[in-house]
């Protein structure tokens, strides 16, 4: 059974690219256009990994992560941040929220794959 990955990204092209790639690699991908969309879907679908952008309309990445971490039914789900923001600006906050990885935009498919695999293999 393929691993289920939720991708949260407000830029439609980028979301498409990531979804396409991960699907090609054999993952069950749940694309979400913003944090709000993601949180709504999490209510009935629990992924193995959540990859989320930070700057998004409606509900941004950090707010989403905080909601996830506060919910006992999903706080165990590993989260990877996928953002153009430099990590040092958010590192402290990310660490406090127990984020698994920080994927910096732009990144290559291999890099993305490598990180996803490492998280899911744990």
């Amino acid at each position: 059974m393929p691993k289920k990955i939720m991708v949260v990204e407000d830029t439609p092209d980028l979301l498409q690219h990531v979804t396409d790639f991960l699907t090609m690699e054999g993952y069950d991908v749940e694309p979400c256009s913003n944090g709000h969309d993601a949180y709504r879907k999490l209510a009935y679908s629990k992924p193995d990994l959540i990859i989320t952008d930070l700057l998004m309309p409606k509900l941004d990445g950090f707010a989403l992560i905080e909601k996830i971490k506060q919910d006992k039914t999903m706080q165990h789900i590993p989260v990877a941040i996928f953002s153009a923001k430099p990590p040092h600006e958010n590192e402290a906050r990310a660490l406090s929220l127990n984020v698994q990885a920080f994927i910096k935009k732009p990144c290559s498919l291999d890099d993305l794959h490598e990180i996803v695999k490492s998280i899911l293999d744990k």
Binding site: T11, D13, L14, H17, V18, D20, F21, M24, L55, A84, K85, K105, P106, C107, S108, L109, D110, L112
Partner: peptide, 18 residues
């Protein structure tokens, strides 16, 4: 600005990589 550039760059990178 760098952030704004990184997003289209990411698209380009992922699309070309794909």
């Amino acid at each position: 600005a760098s952030h704004e550039f990184r997003t289209p760059l990411s698209s380009i990178s992922l699309a070309s990589g794909f």
